[in-house]
């Protein structure tokens, strides 16, 4: 398997701020790779480093085995779908999509045909003559996608492309993007702060926090076996139990993650907990609990009786639900 993008101890500092701090990373060719993290975690800077808009302060980035330090953005075999789409307002949709081909010197008829084909691929035929200002957010997003893909990049970089869309459209685009990536076989590097998006679309996910990668792995691994308390908390809001409590429960002193859906109420045994609140979420109800000073949440399936705030309940979980994390954050 070829490595499409490799980071070798890459850092990007802005004065004292370490936006990206000694990151090592390998993205395989043809992979759908997600960079997940809260804002300011360095994921977008990593994307901009691949595109060439930023230069690493230290370390090296290789794109298909070639060091990229001296390669300007316009000579890199990558294309970007920008967060604000960055469509050229003075050009119509067709000329926007054909821009890269025009720069590459392709003839007018040929590049217009290619642009129309790309628009068809993103389900936007018939919009070629319009100006970007006459399109909705979702339509602009598709045009931005077509404009990048028409150049047949080896790596497509997507910077929170679904962030501005409403929920329904976002879910639809998630499915379409995934399908497009399978069909074209292009490496996608996708930046998002939405863990659901990352988990549902990506082959592998890198979780970022404060300029560092906390964990890289398949979505199942990230979700079920978080390696750090940050990952457990950020990916799916898992309960993170403090080492003292884990020591009492298991005899080993380490942070542990406990999925809220694994916690259930029981009539006897287990731990005693006090109910501090409930939130109705549709299919489930989230109970917030207090276990000897440690806050914990549990998800109750619809139909189960919901205890009132202040009630004393007993909780338990399946033995393998508690996942010990030997590493701290960072």
């Amino acid at each position: 398997m070829t490595t499409a993008v490799a980071f070798r101890k890459v850092s990007r500092h802005y004065g004292p701020v370490r936006a990206v701090d000694a990151v090592n990373l390998e993205v395989a060719e043809g992979e759908f790779f997600a960079m997940l993290g809260p804002s300011g975690s360095g994921k977008t800077t990593c994307l901009r480093l691949i595109a060439g808009f930023e230069k690493p302060t230290a370390g090296e980035i290789e794109i298909f085995g070639k060091p990229s330090a001296t390669v300007p953005p316009y000579r890199r075999p990558v294309n970007t779908v920008f967060q604000d789409y960055a469509l050229f307002p003075h050009l119509n949709v067709r000329d926007n999509v054909a821009y890269g081909l025009m720069i590459a010197g392709m003839g007018k008829a040929e590049r217009h045909a290619a642009a129309d084909a790309a628009l068809e691929m993103v389900a936007m035929p018939g919009y070629a003559e319009r100006k970007p200002s006459a399109l909705s957010g979702g339509q602009r997003q598709r045009v931005a996608l077509a404009r990048a893909l028409v150049n047949k990049p080896k790596v497509l970089l997507l910077d929170e492309p679904l962030g501005a869309l409403d929920l329904k459209l976002r879910e639809q685009m998630q499915v379409e993007l995934k399908g497009l990536q399978r069909q074209l076989g292009i490496t996608f590097v996708f930046v998002t702060h939405d863990q659901g998006e990352a988990l549902s679309m990506a082959d592998r996910v890198a979780v970022f926090s404060e300029g560092r990668i906390q964990q890289v792995g398949r979505p199942e691994d990230i979700y079920d076996r978080p390696e750090t308390p940050f990952v457990a908390d950020f990916v799916g809001s898992s309960n993170v139990l403090p080492p003292e409590m884990v020591a009492r429960l298991t005899g080993r002193k380490a942070h542990a993650s406990l999925r809220p859906e694994a916690v259930h109420l029981q009539s006897e045994g287990g731990l005693e907990a006090r109910v501090t609140g409930q939130a109705f979420l549709g299919a489930v109800t989230r109970l917030t609990l207090d276990v000897a000073g440690t806050p914990l949440s549990a998800l109750l399936q619809k139909g189960q009786p919901v205890p009132a705030t202040g009630d004393s309940v007993r909780i338990g979980w399946d033995e393998d639900a508690l996942h010990l994390m030997e590493r701290g954050n960072g």
């Binding site: 294309n79 970007t80 967060q83």
Partner: peptide, 26 residues
């Protein structure tokens, strides 16, 4: 928007082409 210049570079245009095809028309 500043990302227009980056978009142009990203699509293969050098500084001169970016000025000619993106900045100047805008």
């Amino acid at each position: 928007s500043g990302s227009l210049v980056e978009a142009s570079m990203d699509l293969g245009a050098n500084a001169f082409q970016t000025f000619r095809y993106v900045i100047l028309p805008n």
